[in-house]
């Protein structure tokens, strides 16, 4: 209630993402300093651990599932929707991909293709349940997609724990899949899954930029009412997007099982937390696919570097997760503050 103009308190115009990363690095460094470590040493270990020539394959191998789960989150986010059910969808895909070569006859290459497609189909269909709940019954997908994750994980755990368990070991896991049905190795730890994921990532970017569906999804994300007014069938679109998102999660599960673990082991797909790192990467880019892919790759490098740092120095790799969180939080603050200022 004053005639006096508010003083314009504006932060300097540094693009938000680099600024957030900078703040994360500085705060993370302080954290290391406070706990008695050497920040320069820590960051050097992260960088060499992630990007040195010998370590690059490891980073790429870690990036395949992480970028995959980034796309799982980014695709719905592009249209203003959120899929929190990546864990469940990925686990379903992983289990299906393990069961196909174990229980179906046929030549190896064919089994690989069938396993991947079956995994994508199963996970995609499972993800559409959440979309169906929202479009038909008004259950917010944000909640249902997350909740649906737990029964999926539980059921898969039961299946490998009891009926289809490898009885030769003491663990809840399937038997090893035959060698012929494993993804071909490119070099070292790298397998053909890298190529598959690159193709999928490129397809998502192309879809976003050049297709009618991509346009409709973008417009929905910017103003869903406008999209509906323009004739975009919002319910069908939500179902389709969730199917695609779930299918990519299934693909990630399948690539891990067929490419590096060679069996479905209870909990093994979830412990690295790809879903949540992917979600953060997608949020970082606001759902824009290319940005999300880069963010996902960045997080993969950060995390692989974290492992190296833990080996080389006495600093635990949790630091890299802290870094990741600070970056996201800081971005969220910036967005929130910016928005409020606008409406004033």
């Amino acid at each position: 209630m004053s005639d006096i103009a508010r003083p314009a308190r504006r932060l300097p115009r540094i693009p938000p993402v680099p600024l957030a990363i900078l703040v994360g690095v500085v705060l993370g460094g302080l954290l290391v300093l406070v706990s008695g470590g050497n920040p320069v040493e820590a960051y050097a270990a992260i960088v060499t651990g992630a990007l040195a020539f010998d370590n690059l394959p490891n980073t790429l191998n870690w990036a395949v599932p992480l970028v995959g789960m980034t796309l799982v989150a980014a695709t719905p986010l592009r249209g203003g929707m959120i899929n929190l059910g990546g864990d469940g969808q990925m686990v379903i895909g992983g289990l299906v991909a393990a069961l196909v070569p174990l229980y179906l006859p046929g030549p190896g290459p064919l089994l690989i293709i069938v396993a991947i497609l079956a995994a994508m189909l199963a996970s995609g269909l499972y993800a559409t349940i959440a979309a169906w709940g929202e479009t038909r019954h008004g259950i917010p997908m944000l909640i249902s997609s997350l909740l649906l994750s737990y029964p999926a994980i539980g059921i898969c755990s039961y299946i490998v724990g009891f009926p289809l368990r490898d009885t030769t070991t003491g663990l809840a896991q399937t038997p090893m899949i035959p060698e012929a049905a494993r993804l071909p190795v490119l070099s070292g730890p790298l397998n053909a899954g890298l190529l598959v994921m690159m193709v999928v990532a490129i397809l998502v970017v192309l879809y976003d930029r050049f297709t009618v569906g991509g346009y409709e999804l973008r417009m929905r994300g910017l103003n869903a009412r406008f999209a509906g007014y323009g004739g975009v069938p919002l319910a069908r679109q939500m179902t389709g997007v969730m199917f695609a998102s779930g299918a990519i999660a299934g693909l990630v599960g399948a690539l891990i099982v067929l490419g590096s673990q060679f069996r479905f082991q209870d909990g093994a797909l979830l412990s690295p937390g790809y879903t949540w790192s992917g979600l953060m990467a997608a949020l970082l880019a606001g759902g824009e696919p290319l940005g999300a892919i880069l963010a996902g790759a960045f997080f993969a490098a950060l995390q692989t570097g974290g492992f190296a740092m833990q080996r080389e120095t006495s600093i635990p790799r949790v630091l890299t997760m802290v870094l990741q969180s600070i970056i996201i939080l800081f971005l969220a603050i910036r967005h929130g503050v910016g928005r409020r200022r606008e409406t004033r």
Partner: peptide, 20 residues
């Protein structure tokens, strides 16, 4: 609220409804 998407380009806004 309904007729446009503020953050979208003019080209995108002018295509809506006829974009298919």
């Amino acid at each position: 609220v309904t007729g446009t998407a503020r953050a979208a380009s003019a080209a995108d806004n002018l295509a809506m409804g006829f974009h298919r």
